[in-house]
Design a protein around this nucleic acid. Structure first.
Lengths: 74, 74, 74, 74
DNA sequence: GTGGTCTAGACCACA
DNA sequence: GTGGTCTAGACCACC
């Protein structure tokens, strides 16, 4: 990640999409890192990360299992 | 803390009480009042206050944490 | 503060500097570490820590602010 | 308002709807109180209030003028 | 002096 | 040890 402060949800969306395309984040379980881990990775608050995840969910890229985590839709 | 695993709630209680008596758990904040509060304190517009804060930042007296507020540099 | 309206930025600068020198703007927090931190400090589960905190609350030593944390009662 | 802590967005929605039906909030301008005022009225954070307002916007009850405020749709 | 947006951090319900 | 949700409070762009 760059040193940029306060990344926007859409920037986080883009970056996550790129990582997905590159095969990162896709382990056997296809689970994404937790919201807390993503917060640290992107140097953003959980709220901002959540907004990005909701955006990707709306795009159908990922889906959510309540209190279980976020997973790749493919 | 001792090396004991899984301390009982009452042991934790005791330890917390001791720490409170010793004055621990009290930290010192070096945060300045918010820009809005400073505006009211000085009866000045927020723009004027901002100019003053930027001046102090340039002098190295205070620094800014993005969206977190202003803090003493020392 | 004087009664003067619309003080200049430099006057505000001066005043803030004086307050800093006098030690104002430093407040004392009476907040306890978060439940997660206490769990790590005591190497105990969050449930155990919670029981200890509830005990201390019953003793009137600490009190809770909903979703804000635990604070010393004194 | 009751003494209830941490009201949910949907509870705030209901209450605002009732107030609208009773003709409160509807002055000549049909403008709602500011998000900050609503936060104080409902003893909730701005974020929670915002969620309630977005819900009412989705229902078509109110609409938003960017950086101007919230207004009754009728 | 508004809404827009973000931070850092709580506690909670649940698995 | 996750996501769900909320708090209190920032700064910002704009009116």
């Amino acid at each position: 990640m760059s040193e940029q402060l306060s990344p926007s949800p859409s920037l986080i969306c883009e970056t996550i999409l790129q990582q997905i395309e590159r095969g990162l984040f896709s382990t056997q379980s296809k689970r994404l890192p937790s919201e807390r881990e993503l917060s640290e990775i992107f140097n953003a608050s959980r709220l901002t990360v959540k907004h990005a995840l909701l955006e990707l969910e709306a795009q159908g890229v990922i889906y959510r299992k309540e209190r279980r985590g976020w997973f790749l839709a493919s």
